[in-house]
């Protein structure tokens, strides 16, 4: 897939928009302008992709965009101020879910063509991290919405279950690289979903925003990996920006709340509960 120069240039402009958006968002005076610059960049990116290469199924795609945009905008406009954090969690989750689905689809396409190992590693990474982000975000949403207990949830044998799941997921990720097939990818998805749930269960209500920020960084990294597989510079740069900025933001948020990231995630396992 050779990308025309004007498309690369357009993606560069969009990437600069995203950098300016993050920059603007970190100062009260420029925050709103920054967000609008980011939104403008996103619109440009979506327009470019339709003209970058010939695409089939344009009508269903436009319809799907209209449906998703309507859901997102209506949800964002209707939500009460107190409900915003869980809405952000939900938005983050669906983004991670989208990345995981795309990686699964791409795995199916790659499987027959003896793809380079790096492509398969990036694909496995996206499937795993995208599904962790999806499932984890759904649980944070349920916690903040108080549709489930906001107290840290652990059970007997939780650490064993967590480690077993982690090892199995890493094994399945290696499996995707060695024997690329949609079946192994599907298994990896399921293990990723389970890991996402297990990651967030022991986190107490007050600590949940920190975890949302962490999962936000996760989704960013999975978007970056998708960019590598698709040889799409914009996805790589935008995803990496969010992954890096999101990781730092997670640390800053934890510090501002007087918490360490480690005790937030694993405190409940050591007996001391995370803030409930």
């Amino acid at each position: 897939m050779i990308t025309p120069t004007w498309v690369q240039f357009g993606y560069l402009v969009v990437a600069v928009c995203f950098i300016l958006a993050l920059k603007g968002l970190s100062s009260p005076k420029t925050a709103r302008r920054g967000n609008l610059i980011g939104a403008a960049g996103a619109v440009v990116a979506v327009v470019i992709v339709f003209f970058a290469a010939p695409l089939d199924h344009v009508l269903p795609i436009l319809l799907a965009i209209a449906v998703g945009t309507a859901i997102g905008v209506i949800g964002a406009n209707r939500v009460k101020m107190t409900g915003m954090p869980q809405l952000v969690a939900l938005f983050n989750g669906v983004g991670g879910g989208a990345a995981a689905i795309i990686a699964l689809v791409e795995l199916g396409a790659l499987a027959d063509h003896h793809p380079p190992a790096f492509d398969l590693i990036a694909t496995a990474f996206t499937i795993l991290v995208g599904s962790i982000s999806f499932a984890g975000s759904i649980v944070t949403f349920l916690k903040l919405q108080e549709w489930m207990t906001t107290r840290p949830v652990t059970f007997l044998g939780y650490p064993i279950a967590y480690v077993a799941c982690l090892v199995a997921a890493l094994g399945a990720a290696v499996g995707v690289v060695l024997v690329p097939s949609v079946a192994v990818g599907g298994l990896l998805t399921l293990l990723g979903l389970a890991l996402g749930v297990l990651l967030v269960l022991p986190v107490g209500g007050a600590d949940v925003p920190i975890v949302i920020s962490l999962l936000n960084a996760f989704t960013g990294l999975s978007v970056a990996a998708t960019g590598y597989v698709f040889e799409n510079l914009l996805l790589l740069v935008a995803g990496t920006l969010v992954g890096a900025a999101g990781t730092l933001l997670t640390i800053l948020m934890a510090r501002a709340m007087g918490r360490s990231l480690f005790s937030t995630l694993f405190g409940a396992l050591r007996g001391g509960s995370t803030l409930g």
Binding site: V14, F18, A21, L22, L25, S26, S27, P28, A31, G34, N35, G38, A39, A42, A45, V46, V49, F50, A53, L55, I61, I65, M84, P85, V88, F91, N92, G95, A98, A99, I101, I102, P209, I212, S213, N216, T219, G220, V223, T226, G227, F230, N232, L234, L235, A238, G239, L241, V242, A245, G246, L249, L252, M253, A256
Partner: peptide
């Protein structure tokens, strides 16, 4: 600005839409 920044960064990774369209 921690929360709005997180929300804005979250919106930016929505650009995965480009990959979904492809």
């Amino acid at each position: 600005l921690h929360t709005p920044l997180m929300s804005g960064a979250n919106a930016i990774h929505g650009v995965i839409l480009v990959g979904a369209i492809i």
